[in-house]
């Protein structure tokens, strides 16, 4: 079962993304947050108690109030490596700004960068994205 975590301040996109995910992958486990802070809170708790619930794919919006997508990525760095290794982050944005794209590449756990809206093709791509070999990565 593919586990998805959706983070977007815009409720419309949360609905939209959940619906298209459910349509494409009816078995998908979906958890959604309309703020990055709420998402982090949940992750903190999950890491301590129910590790099995740990998300596999995070679809992260960039432009959000209070804590934006990049702030979230920064906080994520604090997680233990074994936990981070299990996550593939996909940036979801309406921005056309190249700076955001470049910035996103600095995070090793960001696997891809998508422009909204989420499409069936993107879901297929996410599903087929292999997890990185972190030993190689860290050995470099």
């Amino acid at each position: 079962m593919n586990k998805y975590m959706l983070i977007d301040d815009d409720d419309f996109f949360l609905i939209l993304n959940k619906d298209i995910l459910s349509l494409t992958d009816p078995d998908a486990g979906i958890i959604q947050f309309n703020s990055a802070i709420a998402a982090l809170d949940w992750m903190d708790k999950t890491l301590q108690n129910q590790e099995t619930e740990w998300p596999e794919n995070i679809l992260l919006d960039i432009r959000m109030p209070f804590m934006n997508g990049f702030d979230f990525l920064e906080k994520m760095k604090a997680y233990p490596l074994y936990a981070i290794q299990k996550i593939k982050v996909f940036m979801m944005t309406s921005s056309l700004d190249e700076r955001d794209f470049i910035k996103a590449q600095h995070y090793p756990f960001v696997y891809n960068y998508f422009t909204k809206p989420l499409t069936i093709e993107m879901i297929a791509e996410i599903a087929s994205t292999e997890m990185k070999d972190w030993k190689l990565e860290s050995g470099q």
Binding site: F13, S94, K116, P117
Partner: peptide
Amino acid sequence: RSPLLAILGLVQL
């Protein structure tokens, strides 16, 4: 763009 992209996503659905 956000509402527009949302509309696109909705149309897709």
